[in-house]
Simulated assay, not measured.
Amino acid sequence: MVVAPRNQTYFLMLEKLASIDSADGVQAFLRQVIKLYELRHIAYLAVNMPGTPLSEPYLEVTYSLDWVEHYKARRFVDIDPAIRNGFIQMLPFDWGQFSNGEAKLKRFFGEASEFGIGKRGLTIPLRGRRGERALFSITSDLSAAAWEEMRVLYMRDFQVLAMLFHEMVLRLQHAEQDDIVLSSREVECLIWTAEGKSAEDCATILNLSDRTVRAYLENARKKLNVVTTTQAVAKALNYNLLMPRL
């Protein structure tokens, strides 16, 4: 049974993201997330970052240096399914779908296991308005049943962490913040969604139809340039956009 992290600790971590101002702070934060959720590793890879050459990706990992060097020497970037699929998919995906694939993938996962990367993995793709693309991946040594339980319990947490981590990296790269304007109704729908309400709940609270609420949420996602409503809430909170209009 996966034990739920304390909400207070989780929210303190989110606040800490806003104060990180160095690479050392980034690594310390990733280690804290690993400890809170009992993960094995975290990896973040971004390309086309504003202000950096296209040939220079931004990478933050908690993997051992031995694995990083082995990965490079074996040119695993050419077959790594997290990368090959992450930059073309929109939604989070589990690495388990690749475990019974081609022989070269089985060798890849086998060698990764030998280096202690973790038995399970999840990748969350991120796309930015400036053209940047990023992948936020977590790994674990949990059993299949416990891993599935954790994914169900904490997928929202992981998506929020991924989005805010990406925004933090952009800040460290001195990228300008997007100029985003949400309508009053879009803000209201996101605020109630942040409180855990479904689209149907929002419709009842705001005296709107379900279809109208879903349209407002879709518009908000487009303006924020994200895929899921959870990511929209995270980005809107990070940009201080969810203050109710008076």
Rank of each mutant, 00 (worst) to 15 (best):
P92A: 08
H41D: 15
A146L: 11
E69V: 13
I138V: 14
K104S: 14
L217Q: 01
A234C: 01
A43L: 10
E56K: 14
S99K: 15
Y63I: 11
P92M: 12
A144T: 13
D141L: 09
R31C: 10
I117E: 10
L12N: 13
M168F: 06
I191Y: 02
D178S: 07
I117Y: 04
I117K: 08
E149Y: 04
L105N: 03
L224Y: 07
Q177F: 11
M155E: 05
Y216L: 04
M168G: 07
L242C: 06
K119Q: 12
Y10E: 02
T9E: 15
E69P: 10
M13S: 02
D157L: 03
L246I: 10
G110T: 04
T52Q: 15
L246W: 11
I88W: 13
R211K: 14
P50F: 15
Q32F: 11
R31D: 14
S140R: 09
A23L: 12
L172R: 04
A194R: 03
T139V: 03
T204L: 11
Y63F: 13
L105K: 03
A134K: 02
F29G: 00
L126F: 01
W67V: 05
I191P: 01
G25A: 07
M163I: 03
C189T: 08
L142A: 14
Q173H: 14
M150S: 12
L135D: 01
D80Y: 00
E188G: 08
R127F: 04
S137A: 11
A145T: 09
I124W: 03
S19G: 07
N240L: 09
T204P: 12
L161K: 05
R130G: 11
Q8F: 09
H166Y: 08
T52P: 06
T204Y: 12
R133M: 12
S22A: 14
L153M: 07
S209K: 11
D66M: 12
F115H: 09
E111P: 07
Y58V: 15
R107Y: 13
L126N: 02
I191S: 01
L45F: 08
F115V: 10
F29S: 01
T123L: 00
S113T: 12
A203C: 05
A199I: 03
F93K: 14
Q8V: 15
K72E: 08
P53A: 09
S22T: 14
T62N: 05
